[in-house]
């Protein structure tokens, strides 16, 4: 827009030119890292409540594997790790400017991410069928709230990833400007990181 000319266009992947040195990274990446700070605090409140409640009444939690289906979620965790790898491969190919590899890696990430959500929905259906529901007690309340909101974040991530993939197919991401891929990658890895912690403290402890 009209005012953009004050922001020089030479390299958008570096901090804004003609400005005091700030964080050393371009605006969108800094914005995403700051946003992830707030996400950390959001999961702090949910996981913190879980840790506090479980510390208070450990007897209300079943030993690992008794109620929750660990094998299926272990595969699911591996799926999410793979989607992190495909995401980072997509970013690497975006850096190299290899459009075809970028598109295929992005597609792979979208598919694996969506299948993670699918497996989680299946796991929920299985649990609810078995009578393990949020109103069952502390165990059900904390489990469904934490994994539910993590699933919600993964779903939002998959939707954004689809949008980025659609733009990739339009060739919007070149070697000099692939901010979208890097920023959605940061969000995706964060969601994967949260799941890695969640998987351990919910399923394995």
């Amino acid at each position: 827009m009209a005012h953009a000319h004050a922001l020089t266009h030479d390299d958008v992947m570096r901090p804004p030119a003609g400005r005091e040195p700030g964080s050393g990274v371009y605006n969108e990446k800094l914005g995403m890292w700051v946003f992830l700070g707030s996400e950390v605090m959001f999961f702090t409140s949910l996981i913190g409540a879980y840790i506090i409640l479980r510390f208070g009444h450990p007897e209300k939690w079943a030993p690992p594997g008794e109620v929750l289906n660990v094998p299926v979620t272990a595969v699911n965790t591996f799926l999410l790790i793979c989607s992190s790898v495909t995401m980072v491969k997509a970013f690497a190919s975006a850096q190299d400017g290899n459009q075809r590899a970028l598109r295929s890696w992005l597609l792979a990430t979208v598919l694996i991410g969506a299948s993670f959500v699918g497996v989680q929905v299946y796991e929920y259906a299985e649990l609810v069928h078995k009578g393990f529901v949020p109103s069952e007690g502390l165990y059900g309340s904390t489990f469904f709230t934490m994994t539910g909101f993590h699933g919600f974040h993964v779903t939002v991530g998959v939707l954004c990833m689809m949008f980025v993939t659609w733009r990739a197919f339009q060739g919007k991401y070149t070697a000099t400007d692939h901010r979208g891929v890097e920023v959605i990658g940061l969000y995706w890895h964060f969601v994967d990181l949260v799941w890695i912690i969640l998987f351990t403290i919910v399923y394995l402890i």
Partner: peptide
Amino acid sequence: ALWKALLVALYFMHLRFEPNRLRILAIAP
């Protein structure tokens, strides 16, 4: 779990290659 999380943060989220200011900002919360 923390080891895995660290691996993801350092290598996948490139914290190892970012300026120090961003790293502080990332672990601030």
